[in-house]
């Protein structure tokens, strides 16, 4: 299935990537040829086949509800590109969205 420039732009928006025009052109071509390859799968009949979500089947282990030590705030915030006091700071955005 071919992918259009508009689709590439839509996907980039979803993935929060601001692609340049040149990138949109390049990715449209490259993703198109990868998808062409991938679309061969659709010819395969998988009716009734269970999907494998975990290669080694197992039940989810459950952790006992015991609180451990928290990372001290200073350590939690140490790598923040921008912070304000004990908070991470981000550019303002529409409230409550």
């Amino acid at each position: 299935m071919a992918i259009t420039r508009d689709e590439v732009k839509e996907i980039a928006e979803l993935a929060r990537l601001s692609l340049s025009d040149e990138e949109v052109t390049r990715f449209t071509g490259q993703l198109g040829s990868i998808l062409e390859h991938i679309d061969a799968l659709s010819a395969l009949d998988t009716t009734g086949i269970e999907p494998t979500t975990h290669a080694v089947p197992m039940d989810c282990p459950l952790r006992e509800d015991v609180a451990g030590a928290a990372l001290p705030a200073e350590r939690a915030l140490a790598a923040a590109p921008v912070r304000s006091g004990d908070f991470f700071e981000v550019p303002k955005f529409v409230s409550g969205s």
Binding site: A15, L17, A80, P81, V90, K92, F93
Partner: peptide, 23 residues
């Protein structure tokens, strides 16, 4: 937001920061 590099276009909002950072 929490670690790594941030790219903030001047005057841009949060969405602009996300996109510029990841781009």
């Amino acid at each position: 937001v929490r670690y790594g590099r941030r790219v903030q276009p001047p005057g841009g909002d949060l969405a602009a920061m996300y996109q510029a950072t990841r781009e």
